[in-house]
């Protein structure tokens, strides 16, 4: 497998994620080292797969054909603002606009495992994981763009999901064009370099904190129409989620 080729297409059944030769593969199976995993690769399955110690960043993000970025997290929104802060964090690492990030939170079929949202732990413990995922995805996509544009990697920059040649801005390719909405089957050997730690970063030009309030936050809550149940929960499991206060109790105590 050519290191510079981004395997975004459906997996070659002989190669999968592991660049073994057929012979190595069969020897591995015989000796019990390689387990033959059957089934579709879902984002949840992707987490922790492979011989890397880092989780597969595809578990946390997907870049669609339309350029929209979907962030998958086990954390949930209960009014504390994680739906915004995590989107800001990922947008910061990937160099996409905040508005292009969609959040899927707490969906046990699609999101990585999470022990729960409590203790003010989302930012310090999940933040770095999400940053590492975004940083690795960005670095991988730059690497592939470098091959496609025939430009050295360090001559490239990213803005709003567009990778471009710093010396010639018309030489560019978008994240959407690179991923075609599929999983990114390429990973870094080294640790990805994250841009920051924790949540929102100061504006790197002015070093001033980004004080933009989340658009429409107060607006939607003063007329009571904002849905306050956990976000991104599929209808099939919505009943079991803490919605007991949203529905009338079956008993009436007197």
């Amino acid at each position: 497998m050519n290191e510079d080729t981004l395997q975004v297409a459906e997996r070659d059944p002989d190669e999968r994620l592991h660049p073994f030769s057929r012979r190595q593969f069969l020897q591995g199976v015989r000796s019990g080292i390689i387990f033959f995993a059957v089934g579709e690769g879902t984002t949840a399955e992707a987490q922790g797969r492979g011989k890397k110690k880092r989780p597969d960043f595809n578990a946390y993000l997907r870049i669609g054909e339309d350029g929209r970025v979907t962030c998958f997290t086990g954390k949930i929104e209960m009014g504390q603002g994680a739906i915004t802060s995590l989107a800001q964090t990922l947008a910061d690492e990937l160099d996409v606009s905040l508005e292009s990030v969609d959040m899927v939170m707490g969906d046990t079929a699609r999101c990585p495992f999470d022990a729960g949202t409590w203790g003010s732990m989302t930012t310090p413990y999940f933040g770095p994981v999400l940053r590492a995922a975004g940083a690795e995805a960005r670095a991988v996509l730059i690497g592939v763009a470098a091959v496609r544009l025939k430009v050295p990697k360090d001559q490239l920059a990213v803005e709003n999901g567009v990778v471009f040649d710093k010396t010639r801005k018309d030489r560019k390719v978008t994240f959407a064009e690179l991923t075609e909405g599929k999983r990114i089957e390429k990973f870094l050997e080294q640790e990805p370099k994250v841009k920051g730690v924790g949540g929102i970063q100061p504006d790197r030009q002015t070093n001033q904190p980004d004080r933009r309030p989340a658009e429409g936050h107060g607006q939607s809550r003063v007329h009571g129409r904002h849905p306050l149940a956990p976000h991104g929960v599929r209808k099939s499991i919505a009943a079991s989620v803490p919605r007991c206060q949203a529905q009338e109790p079956r008993h009436v105590s007197r």
């Binding site: 209960m78 009014g79 504390q80 603002g81 309030p213 936050h217 107060g218 607006q219 939607s220 809550r221 003063v222 007329h223 009571g224 904002h226 306050l228």
Partner: peptide, 17 residues
């Protein structure tokens, strides 16, 4: 409602109505 938005008189908004 306007002043609640203007003064950021809420966070999660559950008590707000």
């Amino acid at each position: 409602q306007e002043v609640f938005v203007k003064h950021d008189a809420l966070q999660c908004g559950f008590c707000t109505p």
